[in-house]
Simulated scan of single mutants.
Amino acid sequence: TDGDWQVPPFSGEVKDGFIWGRGSWDDKGNLFSMLEAAEQLAKEGFRPRRTIYFAFGHDEEVSGKRGAMAMSKLLQSRGVRLDFVFDEGLLITEGILKGVDKPVALIGIAEKGYVTLDLSTTATPGHSSLPPRDTAIGKLSAALARLEKRPFPASVSGVMRETLQTAAPEMDFGSRVALSNLWLLEPLVRRQMEKTAQTAAAIRTTTAITIFNAGNKENVLPGRAEATVNFRLLPGETEESVIAYVKSTVADDRVKVTPKPGNTNPPPVTSTASPSYQAVNRTIREIFPDVLVVPGLMVAATDSRNYLDVTDSIFRFSPVRATAEDLKRFHGTDERLSVKNYADMIRFYRRLMQNVAG
């Protein structure tokens, strides 16, 4: 899509108050603002009371095996125990959390698990002029249709419940009443949240059929059909529980279910009562005094899951202001980061280091 960009996508051009380019938002903005903040503090003679580790992986998009995973193992080998890990993640959103007039800063205290399953089935191959009652494509298509028609149950509980109840005092009257009485009105709130993909993903384990392979000739019935299905797991689910749900939903022993390597269960939820959460919360409010700070669930996967053996607290937050329109640029055409936002990011990381290690 190079030709669709307003500027060359790898130029890093500063234009109209924005830094343009692939990765300017995800995730070079965080990378360089952390380093600029540390450089400023070092030049001023800042001496942290505790060690601050900067761990930058190069392969987060492909599971982090040579980056975050390797760095975590190195820390383990040195006997290092971290007070908390801070990674990219949720944002300062504007106009996305309905019922709240002010910007909302979501600190990711949890993230979904990642499970991919291969579904396959076989049939007798043959000429298309003599089709059998059940073909490989037909059997697998029916199985996948059942999965889509029967999604995992939705629930306004866990992290999402804490998110909504924290935000409730700042919401409009109707939303405040509903969220203050979830014991009674949860079905109504759940139905409302299921109307958009963004909020629906936060209240259920999602199912996404991503690959389907079968056949290579128009007049030949294939002997095998295969599909790949990706699931993003709510905290509390496991690979085993997803496999059991899939088998129960498909209800066809002719369809084989095989987990792919590299699947990960959801990491533990970080407590909002921890001193480290309070420090992050305070830092956000100091740098962005107009925002409401609430805990949230990261629906995608981050490198931070690889650090579970060296810390009990993980936060996923990027100090970036974003509207629904901005989110379309994420991993997309005309990705950009405002110069003002970049300056705020530097100020945020500078203040965070002062608050936790000053």
Score class of each variant (00 low, 15 high):
R350M: 01
A167W: 05
A279T: 13
L90R: 00
R176Y: 11
N281Q: 14
S128Q: 05
S313N: 12
I109V: 15
G262D: 04
V294F: 06
K102C: 06
A168E: 11
L97D: 03
D134G: 00
A273C: 07
K149R: 14
S157G: 13
V14D: 01
V250F: 01
Q278M: 13
L337G: 10
R305F: 03
L297Q: 05
R161H: 03
V293M: 12
F330S: 00
Q192G: 05
I52T: 11
I287P: 15
R336I: 12
R350L: 01
Q6G: 02
S77T: 13
A300W: 04
R176W: 15
G3Y: 08
G358P: 02
K65D: 15
A214E: 10
K195C: 07
G3K: 09
V280C: 08
L119Q: 03
E60K: 09
L292D: 03
H331M: 03
K149V: 11
R190F: 10
G113T: 04
R191A: 08
V104F: 02
A197Y: 11
Y114S: 04
R150T: 10
T264H: 00
Q76P: 03
F10N: 09
F231D: 11
A55S: 15
D253F: 08
P187W: 09
I287G: 09
L337N: 10
A225N: 11
N230T: 12
T121C: 06
T166M: 06
A37G: 09
T124Q: 09
R47K: 13
Q192H: 03
D134P: 00
W5G: 10
E148A: 09
K98T: 15
G3I: 10
N263S: 14
V250L: 00
A202F: 07
V62F: 05
Q192N: 09
T166D: 10
P275L: 14
V229R: 00
P169K: 06
F330H: 02
V156D: 05
S276W: 02
A42L: 08
T207S: 06
F173Y: 05
V320G: 06
S276Q: 09
L41R: 09
T238R: 05
H127G: 05
P132L: 14
V257H: 01
A225I: 14
S129V: 11
T1D: 05
L106K: 01
K73L: 01
F231H: 13
D59F: 08
K139H: 04
R224K: 14
D87C: 08
S11R: 05
T323P: 01
D118K: 03
G158F: 08
P319N: 12
E325S: 13
I52W: 01
E44A: 12
S274P: 15
V246G: 00
S276I: 04
L82Y: 07
G99Q: 04
T196Y: 05
P235S: 04
N30P: 12
A178H: 11
G17H: 06
L292Q: 06
E218H: 13
L31P: 03
I284F: 07
S24E: 02
L31Q: 06
D290R: 10
V229I: 13
D344L: 13
P266E: 03
T93P: 12
Y53D: 14
K15D: 08
R66W: 13
K43H: 07
R191Q: 07
T116F: 04
Q192I: 08
R329I: 07
V104N: 02
S63W: 14
S241M: 04
T333C: 01
E60Q: 10
K328L: 01
I287K: 07
A214S: 12
V104S: 01
T166F: 12
G174W: 03
L97R: 00
